[in-house]
Amino acid sequence: MTDLTTLEAETYQKPRNQWWDVWDQFKTHKGAVIGAAFFIFVLIFVFLGPIFWTLDAQYIDIRARSQGPSWAHPMGTDQLGRDTLSRIMVGGQTSLLVGLTAMLLALVVGTLVGVLAGYFKRLDGILMRLTDLFLALPLLPLLLVIIMLFRDTLRAQFGPEKGIFILIVFVIGITSWMQTARIVRGDVLALKEREFVLAARSIGTPPYRMITRHVLPNVLSPIMVSATLGIANAIITESALSFLGLGFPSDFPTWGRLLFDGTDWLQRNPERVIWPGLAISLTVLSVNYIGDGLRDALDPRIRGR
């Protein structure tokens, strides 16, 4: 009897964590792995790079203005002699922070609207018509109008940098939640008919506990995919606003602002447009590949093929 118990104990294997299956599937997507590696490199470059490259992004050296790439300035300098590499790092910090913060805001709003619309039938019609209204709005003109109306007020209240940061994050987040809301609503509608939800409802589980315990954990997959794609969308939107001259102040670099400032010097110093353009394009491309990989890895119908 003891030998049998020992044999059973030796042959028993602890159930494998499901996230390991997700990781195994994610690794098979070469584009997602390369995208994740590049995005990690970008994060290290913009947040840890200034520790090693100590040139001040705002330091003006008229004697070194409009220079091409060199050992002293690997990405050249602008018309005031400011180091482009330092400005790319500092600008990347702002662009990525805007993307991450705006994505979180859009994710919270979209998930809240989607869960409420999918779970409570009486709210479905109202919330989905509100979503349709936001989808029908021309977003770029709306962004421009909101920024023009509230930019000076927030600058006076919080300062030029912090005020415009709050405004841009709010504007991007509040106009980017609709796709997440639709996706989450569809998943919640399907989950409501599953056996474990019906069983929990039959024993009197309150709606709040039902949503937090049973519904939200099962809609994490589309939420995570929407999060990755939301970062890319927010970075592009912020870059477009800065390129139009409606983003951060000219002395506060972002990738979009650097691209805007470099257009006047395109023929003389084309690298001033190339570097921020490459940073925006490759970062957005890497995030999109991460989203594709997560979508495949988190879908149980695809996982294991």
Rank of each mutant, 00 (worst) to 15 (best):
E10D: 14
Q18H: 15
W20I: 10
D21S: 11
W23D: 06
D24I: 12
Q25S: 12
K27L: 14
T28P: 01
G31K: 07
A32L: 01
V33W: 03
F38D: 02
F39H: 07
I40Y: 06
L43I: 15
F45W: 08
P50Y: 05
T54V: 12
T54L: 13
Q58F: 12
Y59P: 02
I62Q: 11
R65W: 10
R65T: 06
Q67Y: 10
P69K: 08
P69W: 10
G76E: 04
Q79C: 09
Q79M: 13
S86Y: 01
R87K: 06
I88E: 04
V90R: 03
V90M: 04
G92R: 00
G92L: 00
T94Q: 08
S95R: 01
G99V: 04
T101D: 08
L104D: 05
T111V: 12
L112N: 08
V115G: 00
Y119P: 03
F120L: 09
G125F: 15
M128D: 00
R129V: 05
L135V: 12
L137S: 04
L137H: 00
P138V: 06
L140S: 11
L140G: 07
L143I: 13
I146C: 07
M148I: 14
F150Y: 15
D152T: 11
R155L: 06
R155D: 06
Q157V: 14
P160N: 09
E161S: 04
G163K: 04
L167E: 00
L167R: 00
V169S: 01
V171C: 12
I172Y: 01
G173S: 06
S176H: 03
Q179N: 15
I183G: 10
R185L: 11
V188I: 10
V188T: 13
L191Y: 05
R194D: 13
E195N: 06
L198G: 05
R201K: 14
T205F: 07
T205A: 12
P206L: 08
R209F: 09
I211V: 03
I211G: 01
L216G: 09
A227Y: 02
T228H: 03
T228V: 07
T228E: 02
I235A: 05
T237G: 04
E238V: 11
S239L: 02
A240V: 15
A240R: 10
S242M: 08
L244E: 03
F248C: 01
D251T: 10
D251V: 07
W255P: 00
F260I: 01
F260E: 14
D261A: 09
D261S: 09
D264V: 11
W265E: 07
W265S: 13
L266Y: 06
Q267Y: 14
Q267S: 12
P276Y: 09
L278N: 04
I280V: 05
I280M: 02
L282H: 02
L285H: 01
S286C: 04
V287P: 00
N288A: 11
L294S: 03
A297G: 03
D299A: 08
I302F: 06
R305H: 11
